[in-house]
Write a protein that binds this DNA or RNA. Structure first.
Lengths: 332, 332
DNA sequence: CTGAAAGCGCTTACAG
DNA sequence: CTGAAAGCGCTTACAG
């Protein structure tokens, strides 16, 4: 910067002003600075900027499982609006471990980022105190009872109820759901959807299993369900890895989808349309959720105030494919 | 830090030394500093550290498609050894666009990261000049002719040849491969594998299509291949999204895997084992590649010198499942 | 083993 | 519209 100032024949502050477009600079001085910067090959040192201004031009994205394609899609969707605003995304993974999440958040806080997009771990200890460290916080997908910040979620209860009802409508009398961890808001809300759909049909029944939300955990849970409860003829998944685990367990048990077991996944994935039978699933508008999260962070970081803390709900949509059929009993 | 120094009754440098474990500090002073730090709730400001030491404790991971699960797995695998070493991972996506890659690298460089793990975009302009900006660079999966840095790759040619040979051995006379972009090292090496396998069988033939390496591009390419060349009875995929696109195109054409068309994917994914027919694929040891990349960066960042620039090759392995069968002709 | 001084690269008041 | 001064939080020599 010193070199640029010298080459342009101005002071360092003028260089700063010209390059950042803040404050008054004469058109001529600006041009001289820009030329000099190009000449010298100057690129600003973000660290220096951040130290002085007590803000880094980055936004932390802390997720509970980077192996879940939901979060990969979210990352991509968030990144675009933020990049346009000159912000980069630091992705941190916490494997749904509140301890690790806390450590990752401390690390992130030490960068003084412009914002935080968080999908909290089960049992997260993220609190109002920590919110203050981050200035601009948006919760995506999962919410937290004690933290009053903007949120972006799917209409979990309604969408899951619709999926369950699709199975009941096809004739299934006993539907199982392999959910995520018991403490997650998403598990809670989707379970409520299942209860609602079940309650609306007096002759129907449902059973629930909690899991880590991974393929392996879902496979084990589904195997157990199938072996212990022969009345189950349909299974609802919780996320992409869980849907995968359910399908593997059904295969392992020597059963066929949908002839023996119907399956509906929650959150769509490209492969679900590519395979036989194509998997019916509730498609979440992940790209829109990410875009909204990015936009919110940008607006907050330029100081926009909201009359009410925004709590955005984007609707999921049931995509009917081939993994749902009437149950065996009715076929015989 | 000032507060900690005051509370401990020492100078700021002693605090720095005690907390970082560098230089001499008396056991008593160290204890007083540690207690004071805990008392005050001190957490170091990474920005301040980075500015002074001209290094941030972060490693950039720049990938060409975060939507490709290969890179999500790579991120997770790299993150673990780096976190142990006190380094965090900044993931940047460039959508295989050399322009954007260049911008992302400039951004990253301005943080003075401890290292860079790069899977270069097709037509990347990453050069020796840029390598110098990053101190420690490792190339993963894709290599670059003019850049002499450590690399970690799969045995592309051999693994792809083995996959092709699996199809020839099953009786296929004309095998198609939907590859990635023409300029990518991975495309080049895998194509060489296909040629080698084809050349070894005088009566067999192969055809190649380049693509963007996305599901959509592969779908289009495969549809075209299938429509224009009825001799094709088997298709090799390039990566997980391409395999997905191939399967969709086969479906769209009203054909069945493996009865009408055999398919082998490159890079395994959980869903490939979950579906009917389960997809035969070359499994890449992504986790090992990530771990090796992380380890290399850590070793380089503590100043370890190598006699030779390491070029690590980790073998892929053909996982036989159900998507390969003899071609139609032989069945009739 | 410890502290006083300097400075990393930048931007924020402030004075002109 | 522009510049001299100060300082963000830390660590690197250096002197004791």
């Amino acid at each position: 910067m010193h070199d640029v100032a010298k080459a342009a024949g101005v002071s360092a502050q003028t260089v700063s002003r010209a390059l950042n477009g803040r404050g008054y600079v004469s058109a001529e001085a600006r041009k001289r600075v820009l030329d000099a910067a190009a000449q010298v090959g100057y690129s600003p040192n973000v660290i220096g900027q951040s130290l002085r201004s007590a803000r880094s031009p980055m936004v932390g994205l802390v997720v509970s499982d980077i192996g879940n394609p939901f979060y990969a899609r979210l990352h991509r969707a968030i990144e675009t609006p933020l990049r346009t605003a000159g912000l980069s995304v630091l992705l941190l993974n916490c494997d749904d471990d509140p301890e690790l999440e806390s450590a990752q958040l401390d690390l992130l806080a030490s960068y003084r980022p412009a914002g935080l997009v968080l999908s909290p771990a089960t049992g997260s200890r993220f609190s109002a105190r920590q919110v203050a460290l981050f200035e601009n916080v948006v919760l995506v997908s999962r919410t937290l009872p004690d933290v009053d910040v903007p949120t972006i979620v799917t209409n979990e209860t309604e969408a899951f109820a619709a999926a369950a009802d699709e199975l009941f409508a096809a004739g299934h009398r006993r539907v199982a759901a392999v959910l995520g961890p018991e403490g997650a808001s998403t598990t809670h809300l989707r379970e409520a959807g299942l209860q609602r759909a079940t309650a609306a049909r007096p002759t129907r029944d449902s059973v629930v299993r909690y899991s880590e939300g991974t393929s392996l955990a879902a496979r084990t849970a589904t195997a157990d369900l199938l072996a212990s409860d022969p009345g189950i003829t349909a299974v609802l998944g919780f996320n992409v890895p869980v849907t995968e685990g359910i399908l593997i367990a059904v295969r392992d048990a020597g059963l066929r989808v949908p002839q023996d077991i119907s399956v509906i996944g929650f959150t769509d994935a490209g492969w679900m349309a590519a395979v036989h039978p194509a998997v019916t699933a509730v498609a979440q508008p992940v790209e829109e959720m990410g875009r909204l999260a990015g936009d919110l962070i940008v607006r907050m970081s330029v100081g926009e105030q909201f009359d009410h803390v925004p709590h955005l709900v984007v609707p999921g949509e049931l995509v009917r494919r081939e993994s749902v059929a009437p149950p065996r009993e009715e076929r015989r």
